[in-house]
């Protein structure tokens, strides 16, 4: 389903290239539950954003369901993303000005789903995640766990092939975290591909496969093979213009 070849990402200014990802090769099969682990600044989130087409690699090839993403224009990429990818973030990222109902509705609006179908999809989701009672509340009126529940519901509502989760339990207590992970497990069991980024071995244990990143390098399974050098490279600098 996903094939990455030689994905490299760096930020450059006139004097220094700061590498975030180096020459990543990765294959993910449909229906897989993959965990990306690694210390802070290893490039995990960047990899996730590239997979989610919210960021672009500087070099390398990215095939999604056989389509060469790196060759698509922005419009096409948005379409692909709209159809097939759901995002879950550590800090939920719900739209503060919209109610639970409206938050769930928004991705369907972007996808131009018809009103009737939209209503029934949102109603289904509210039902499935047991948040019907909360539908008219604003995010700020919900607990962290509830917000993340809504965020997952929002990701799932477009029935994506792939869910990308960036530390989805990072801001939750252990019980809430467990509930979310169980939810992912269930979704995965029904065939949704899931890729998560996490620090927690416990969360990783829900997945079929774990890859490790360190300073932008991918270390397959083994943690020992540390390529030396580059201690400074993991630090992300503030915003620089992209490209070079």
């Amino acid at each position: 389903m996903i094939r990455l070849r030689g994905i490299t990402k760096y930020y450059a200014n006139a004097f220094v290239k700061t590498f975030v990802l180096r020459n990543i090769d990765l294959d993910v099969k449909e229906g897989e539950f993959l965990t990306i682990m690694g210390p802070s600044g290893a490039g995990k989130s960047t990899l996730l954003y590239i997979l989610g087409m919210l960021d672009e690699a500087c070099e390398g090839e990215y095939f999604f369901c056989g389509q060469a993403v790196h060759e698509l224009n922005e419009k096409k990429r948005t379409q692909l993303h709209q159809q097939d990818i759901g995002f879950v973030f550590q800090s939920y990222h719900l739209i503060d000005e919209l109610t639970v109902y409206e938050n769930l509705e928004t991705p369907l609006l972007y996808k131009k789903v018809k009103p009737d179908e939209r209503k029934s999809l949102v109603a289904d989701a509210l039902d499935r995640f047991h948040i019907v009672a909360k539908k008219d509340l604003f995010p700020s009126q919900l607990s962290g766990g509830q917000q993340q529940l809504v965020a997952v519901a929002r990701a799932v509502i477009i029935q994506p092939k792939l869910i990308l989760a960036d530390e989805p339990t990072g801001n939750l207590n252990s019980q809430q975290g467990e509930e979310i992970m169980e939810l992912f497990k269930k979704l995965n069991a029904k065939g949704t591909t899931i890729i998560q980024v996490t620090h927690s071995e416990r969360n990783a244990s829900y997945s079929d496969r774990v890859i490790h990143l360190l300073d932008g390098w991918m270390i397959n399974g083994e943690k020992s093979a540390l390529p030396g050098e580059h201690r400074e490279s993991g630090k992300r600098k503030k915003k620089y213009p992209e490209g070079t």
């Binding site: 919210l54 922005e74 739209i95 503060d96 000005e97 972007y110 929002r154």
Partner: peptide, 16 residues
């Protein structure tokens, strides 16, 4: 800015 990020991540195009 955050809202822009979220909307893009749930499928909004720039035109939208």
């Amino acid at each position: 800015a955050r809202e822009v990020g979220i909307r893009k991540s749930i499928g909004s195009s720039r035109g939208e």
